[in-house]
Simulated assay, not measured.
Amino acid sequence: MDGLIFMFLILLIVLIFYTSRNINTIYFYAYTRLLYIPVIISALKFDIKKSLIIPTIVSVGEFLEIYLTEKSYIFLVTFIISVPIYYFVSVSISYFRMQAERLKKMMEEMQENLRDMENAMISALEAKDVYTQGHSQRVCKLVTQIVLKMGIQGKEAEEIITAARLHDIGKIGIREEILEKPGKLSYQEFAEIMDHPVMGYEIVKKLKVMENVAKIIRHHHERYDGKGYPDGLKGEDIPLGSRIIAVADAFDAMTSKRPYRESPLTIAEAVAELRKNAGVQFDPKVVEAFISIIEDLGIDY
C-alpha cells in the first residue's frame, strides 16, 4: 500500500512538471504551489524520514525544470525560497501527525487500564457480596438505555455510564454480615449502609480523570424531594447522572432477589412504584424516559 502511494505521488509530480513546460513567471509561481500537494500527502502518510523523499524529488525536479527551460533569475529566486519551505512543511506535518498518533495511543491505553481497574473493583465487590453479582452490569445497561433515550452524548454520557458500573463500589467497605442480613436492618446497620456512596466517592475521586464520576456516585441515593443521603440535595441540584442511576438502581433492586425480601416485584409493580414516587424520590423526567424505554421494548406492565 505504501509503495502504491509513493508511485502516485511521483506520477503526480511528473504530471505537474510536464504541464509546466514553457511557462511564464505567474504560472511558475502557481506551479511551485501545486508541488505542496505531494509534499503534504507524503507527510500525512509516512514518518519523517520517508516523507523527506518527496520534497527532495520535488526540489531536484524543480531545479532541472529551471535549468532546462527558462533559466530565469526570478524562477531561481522562487526556487531558493520554495525548497526550505517544502522541507519545513513536510517535517512539521509529519512530526505533529506522529505526535497526535502517539497521544491517541496513550489515551486508548489509559482508557483500557481504567476499564480493567473498573472490572477489578466490581469483581472484588461481587466476590464479597453475592447479592450484588450482576447488579452493576444490569444497572449499567439500564442507565445506558436511559442516557440514549434522553439524548445525552459525549463525555457526559461516558461519565454517567461509568458511574453506573461503579455506583455501589463503596459497599466494599461495608461488613458482610450487614450486606447479607436477611431481616430488617437496625438503625446503626442502616447508617453504615448509608455510608457506601461516600466511600465510593472517596475511592473513585483519587483518580483525577474520574472526578465527575465520583460526584455522580456520591449522590446516587439523593432523593428528588431532598430527603435522601448523604447530602440531602434536592431536585436539579442532584447531578443528572445520579438521578438517572437512582431510577435504574431502584428498578433493578425491586425486580431482583434480595436478602431482605422474599420475592422480587414484577415489572408492572416496579413501574407502578416508580410512577408513584416520581417527583418525590425520583426525577419525573428520568422516570418518564425509563417507562418510555419499556414501552418501546413492548414489555407489558
Results as ranks from 00 to 15, higher is better:
residue 272 A to D: 15
residue 203 I to L: 15
residue 177 E to N: 10
residue 246 A to Y: 03
residue 100 A to V: 06
residue 100 A to E: 11
residue 32 T to P: 00
residue 198 V to S: 12
residue 248 A to L: 05
residue 285 K to P: 02
residue 129 D to V: 07
residue 82 S to P: 01
residue 63 F to P: 00
residue 261 R to A: 11
residue 242 S to H: 06
residue 293 I to P: 06
residue 1 M to S: 11
residue 269 E to I: 05
residue 61 G to H: 01
residue 23 I to D: 11
residue 171 K to L: 06
residue 157 A to Q: 05
residue 160 I to D: 07
residue 36 Y to I: 00
residue 189 E to K: 09
residue 103 L to C: 03
residue 59 S to G: 06
residue 297 L to F: 13
residue 183 G to D: 12
residue 192 E to S: 07
residue 92 S to E: 02
residue 53 I to H: 00
residue 227 K to Q: 15
residue 264 P to G: 09
residue 32 T to S: 09
residue 236 E to W: 04
residue 148 L to Y: 15
residue 228 G to A: 11
residue 31 Y to M: 14
residue 293 I to Y: 04
residue 16 I to M: 00
residue 300 D to V: 14
residue 99 Q to Y: 08
residue 28 F to E: 10
residue 279 G to P: 04
residue 272 A to H: 09
residue 29 Y to H: 10
residue 100 A to L: 13
residue 28 F to M: 12
residue 203 I to E: 09
residue 148 L to S: 14
residue 80 I to E: 02
residue 296 D to T: 08
residue 64 L to W: 01
residue 183 G to V: 05
residue 155 K to M: 09
residue 234 K to W: 06
residue 85 I to Q: 08
residue 229 Y to E: 12
residue 105 K to A: 13
residue 22 N to A: 12
residue 281 Q to D: 11
residue 263 S to W: 08
residue 106 M to T: 10
residue 147 V to E: 05
residue 101 E to R: 13
residue 259 P to W: 03
residue 270 A to P: 03
residue 168 D to H: 10
residue 27 Y to T: 09
residue 35 L to K: 02
residue 30 A to N: 12
residue 3 G to W: 14
residue 213 V to E: 08
residue 123 S to P: 00
residue 79 F to Q: 04
residue 55 P to E: 03
residue 299 I to M: 11
residue 142 L to H: 11
residue 124 A to P: 01
residue 52 L to F: 04
residue 47 D to I: 06
residue 27 Y to Q: 13
residue 239 P to I: 09
residue 103 L to K: 14
residue 195 D to W: 05
residue 15 L to Y: 14
residue 20 S to C: 02
residue 223 R to M: 14
residue 107 M to R: 14
residue 102 R to P: 00
residue 234 K to S: 06
residue 235 G to S: 10
residue 182 P to C: 07
residue 208 K to H: 09
residue 219 H to F: 13
residue 176 E to M: 04
residue 209 V to D: 11
residue 47 D to N: 15
residue 230 P to M: 12
residue 5 I to P: 03
residue 165 R to V: 01
residue 50 K to P: 02
residue 116 D to V: 03
residue 14 V to I: 15
residue 288 E to H: 05
residue 139 V to N: 06
residue 16 I to C: 00
residue 165 R to K: 15
residue 265 L to M: 14
residue 270 A to V: 02
residue 51 S to N: 08
residue 243 R to H: 01
residue 15 L to P: 01
residue 44 L to Y: 03
residue 296 D to H: 03
residue 169 I to A: 02
residue 9 L to P: 09
residue 148 L to D: 15
residue 178 I to R: 08
residue 5 I to E: 09
residue 117 M to A: 14
residue 255 T to C: 07
residue 25 T to C: 04
residue 219 H to L: 07
residue 296 D to N: 10
residue 177 E to T: 02
residue 212 N to Q: 13
residue 190 F to R: 11
residue 279 G to Q: 03
residue 4 L to V: 10
residue 89 V to K: 01
